[in-house]
């Protein structure tokens, strides 16, 4: 599968707008996966109808103590790189939210006093709507780690979903969850907006994507159609502006109603077509 991450630095620039409309548009002619990896607050599902196909609970492995084997030597605490283990005298306390399931404590315990047990992280939901397969990854409330859930979502895609093209709605920002998402994709669309925050966060996102050695293109949302700070930045840095979605109240209204925008707005349709033809040319190059 050729996977395209739809990412942004700043939140609220239009990742979901682009991902959902682009997926539906492409699905008119071919099998498409739309995956929502914004696991802390997935919302692409609002724009997807269809049939529930399968659900899967996702777990991570966390340590527990075998009390009668523990002598309180503190080795597990020393080797934990994530401060997930505290020793009060000879008492061991585990903080499972901080645990990265690296198994160092289990492997290095001189008394084999640690075993791993699964802890639920979240859930995957697959919905099928004709050509469109939708996968949502959702982190449980109170869970802090998006990365293992995202990792397992990509494993699930590999094993279960045959579409040739995947549109991956990414988390906002440029920290670990975004890195994990982009790492697993072949190309990145960076959605931004002409505001100082939009520009600042776009620069960080561009640096991140470059570090990960991924090719990318810029999509400007809420574009005022004139010279603006994003256009200036892109021309200075020689970055490709793939599409520019105009700033229009009617587009925001369609979105807030949960409608597909390209079906009702011709300007928006034009921009989605530009993005779609980029997707198709990337696919041709791959083949």
């Amino acid at each position: 599968m050729y996977k395209i991450a739809v990412a942004s630095g700043k939140g609220g620039t239009g990742k979901t707008t682009v991902s959902t409309n682009l997926s539906h548009y492409l699905a008119q002619e071919q099998a498409i996966l739309l995956a929502d990896m914004d696991v802390e607050e997935p919302d692409s599902h609002i724009f997807v109808q269809g049939q529930l196909w399968q659900e899967k609970k996702v777990y991570k492995e966390v340590p527990t103590l075998i009390k009668d084997k523990c002598v309180g030597c503190g080795r597990c605490k020393e080797v934990c790189a994530f401060n997930a283990i505290t020793m009060l005298g000879k008492r061991v306390l585990f903080f499972n939210e901080l645990c990265h399931s690296c198994y160092a404590c289990l492997e290095l315990c001189p008394h084999q006093a640690i075993e791993m047990k699964p802890q639920m992280l979240g859930q995957l939901t697959q919905i099928n709507d004709k050509n469109l397969t939708f996968l949502e990854a959702r982190l449980d409330i109170g869970q802090e780690q998006a990365v293992p859930l995202i990792k397992q979502s990509f494993d699930f895609i590999k094993e279960n979903i045959p579409a040739e093209i995947g549109i991956i709605d990414s988390p906002p920002g440029s920290s670990c969850p975004v890195v994990e998402t982009v790492k697993n994709c072949d190309f990145v669309f960076l959605v931004t907006e002409p505001s100082p925050f939009g520009l600042n966060d776009l620069k960080i996102a561009v640096d991140t994507v470059k570090l990960l050695k991924k090719d990318f293109a810029i999509i400007i949302n809420k574009d005022d159609g004139e010279e603006n700070i994003i256009r200036d930045y892109c021309s200075k840095e020689d970055l490709e502006i793939l599409a520019a979605i105009p700033e229009k109240q009617s587009i925001a209204e369609l979105y807030s109603r949960g409608s597909l925008i390209y079906e009702e707005d011709v300007d928006f349709l034009g921009e989605i077509q530009k993005i779609a033809s980029k997707v198709n040319s990337l696919m041709r190059r791959k083949r």
Partner: peptide
């Protein structure tokens, strides 16, 4: 320098 788990680490030091 610690990204995550500052609370438990500081508490450990205090203890």
């Amino acid at each position: 320098e610690t990204a995550h788990g500052a609370g438990p680490q500081t508490s450990q030091k205090i203890f």
